[in-house]
Amino acid sequence: MSGVPGFSYAYLDEGTKRMLRRTLLKAVAIPGYQVPFGAREMPLPYGWGTGGIQVTAAIIGPSDVLKVIDQGSDDTTNAVSIRRFFRRVAGVATTERTTEATIIQTRHRIPETPLREGQILVYQVPMPEPLFRLEPRLAETRRLHALADYGLMQVRLYEDIVRHGAIATAYNHPVMVDGRYLMSPSPIPAFDNPKMHRMPALQLFGAGREKRIYAVPPYTDVVSLDFEDHPFRPIRAPHACALCGAADSYLDEVLTDDSGGRIFVCSDTDYCATRQAARQAAE
């Protein structure tokens, strides 16, 4: 095993990794439940993915292939920084291909290419508590989860429809996991929510600053909160990707000049590049 001399494999000491693995096992056993854990200071700031990094560090091994994305892209600065960190401290192979990766650490997106069994998706979570805007006291939210007392969250969605005619959460839209726990999907766009439902891959969520880990085991029900007569709507820009032509992917809006010129391109850079390559090969 390789790594950095003077530091443990994957940075964390073995005792810390054991603690994290115990936490992860508990999280997998109780889908959607936030398990407190003794998050460590990492050499990256809190709020920059320390939870995701600790989860990845606890599960990664020399045979893994790691992909890191931020905003769907492998090339954004924080993704580059985290990928480089693991190359350095764990000596693992990295990839930008969703299909080649065994572990994908992500901030704010789920890849467009469906994940398969055996893959693990690690989410970076800034605020694990889905109720925090309605009830900031942790002691109280813990009680609400224990009693599955989620009427208040539904009231918020009701108020959205009253005011805006539609549910107005564009991202971080709360989900019910396995019919029991209300969970924050992390700030992914609502477009990505349906991908969580019965996903064949294991989904792990790490919140370093808030010191919580939670999980969705493979093939678990994940249902976005909504009303029967106002069903949940995944939102995307109503365009096709200017680069690969995809009409089913989540798009970034890119301003091309200062007079209103704009194009829409895939947020998932691997998905887009793969489609472009396939098109060129076909031509």
């Binding site: 200071e41 700031p45 809190y46 709020g47 920059w48 320390t50 931020d70 905003q71 769907g72 954004t76 600065t77 924080n78 901030r107 704010h108 997106r109 800034p126 564009a170 991202y171 971080n172 700030p187 992914i188 766009p189 609502a190 477009f191 600053r209 939102i235 995307r236 820009a237 989540y250 798009l251 970034d252 809006e253 947020s267």
Partner: peptide, 23 residues
């Protein structure tokens, strides 16, 4: 250390969420 990390993380790209808000 927690506070500065979270305040400063607002510098990181948020354009995916912002796009969703925009739409």
């Amino acid at each position: 250390v927690e506070a500065t990390g979270f305040v400063e993380h607002l510098k990181l790209p948020h354009y995916v969420d912002f796009q969703s808000e925009l739409e």
